[in-house]
Simulated assay, not measured.
Amino acid sequence: MKRVAIGDVVLESGECIRQVEVGYQAYGTYDREANNAVVVCHALTGDVYVAGDEQRAGWWEGLIGPGMPIDTNKYYVICSNVLGGCYGTTGPASLCPEDGKPYGSRFPFITIRDMVRVQRRLLEVLGVEQLYAVIGGSVGGMQVYEWMTEYPEMMQLALPIATCSRFSAIAIAYNDAARQAIQSDPEWQGGDYYPAAGPRRGLSVARMIGMITYRTAELFEERFGRSLQATNDSDPSQTMFQIESYLRYQGEKLVDRFDANSYLTLLKAMDTHDIGVNRGGIEQALSRVRAKVVSIAIDSDLLYPDSHQRDMADLMERLGKKIDFYLMESKYGHDGFLVEFQKMGRIIKPYFDR
């Protein structure tokens, strides 16, 4: 991973974060004349390794890489860690320049729009003036919506996947349950737990809640059903089902790689996401779009229902925008955009076969 300093950043709220650094990874070679730059926006706990490297697999390597639908032999692909994250970009665990101590509870409220403005600043530092495409799923798709309304002349193609133009009430409810799990953990200490490990139990439970929303009842039933992980004949209350074991494993795995304050920061950015804010509403915001839009929804998505993306596609069509809408069938639910590489590839590939 590479890191670059982009200077002070004034947030949408008016607050300023000083001396911001951005962690990013780039694949391929930039060709200004060919306009081959592609920005990939990652999801909630994602990182910059979209296509992987010699040491690790990439979370979208089935779609991005040499010979893949987004071919890094042709395209210059950039993925940066979001503002507020914990994988190389300034976030709550970063040291505040004023006193050299972690921000913790002092880290300011940020929005999806703030994240995108930081990504735009990164491109300026890298000397990338135009993009062929911006693509992302889930929270990454929220960023795509912001890209195509905040910088409408910047890209030719925008691909929001399994996402929304504004967060729904039920999704905010799931996020608040996760937030309460973290903040109820005594080890959270109001966000000022560094250098201790912090609210590991709370973050683990928050992740368990998230995992329930990312998959489907059909998939859980198929994989686990009522199969037992462990039995206890003397105390049946201690019997554990495989689905319980799976969720606990997923929760424990996250706490080893993610910061609880970053999780809270990004959840709140999701909650407040609405491209219509300070733009006269969603219709006025979408009227700004100039790129060709390829919207991909998942029919079993609990967190980002396909009906919302279909409504946005219909609205853009009424506004005279160039829009193609695809509904992808998947038993994997919201996580389908991270799993169904063949289905996704068939949809995406024609738009990158230039």
Rank of each mutant, 00 (worst) to 15 (best):
M208H: 03
D259R: 10
R226G: 12
D235F: 13
Y194G: 09
R120E: 06
M316F: 06
C86Q: 02
R201W: 04
Y351S: 12
A178N: 05
T216N: 05
D335I: 11
I182M: 09
S105V: 10
S80F: 03
A34M: 09
E124F: 02
G345M: 05
P305A: 07
F220L: 13
G104C: 12
L266E: 02
G104K: 06
C164V: 15
P108S: 10
P97Y: 03
V289N: 03
G336K: 01
D99V: 13
D53E: 06
L327E: 06
Q183H: 04
E329G: 14
A162P: 00
T265P: 01
V9Y: 00
A285Y: 00
I209C: 05
V9A: 03
C96I: 05
E252I: 10
T272D: 08
I282S: 08
Y246R: 08
D306C: 15
M211A: 15
G137L: 07
G127F: 03
P195S: 14
R279L: 09
M115D: 01
L63M: 12
G280P: 06
D311Q: 15
Q19M: 08
P69W: 00
S237H: 14
I112F: 02
E15R: 15
G190E: 04
T111H: 07
L319C: 08
M68E: 11
K292N: 11
K101P: 01
P305L: 10
R166Q: 09
I296S: 05
I212V: 15
K343T: 14
N278M: 13
Y87S: 13
L63D: 03
T272Q: 14
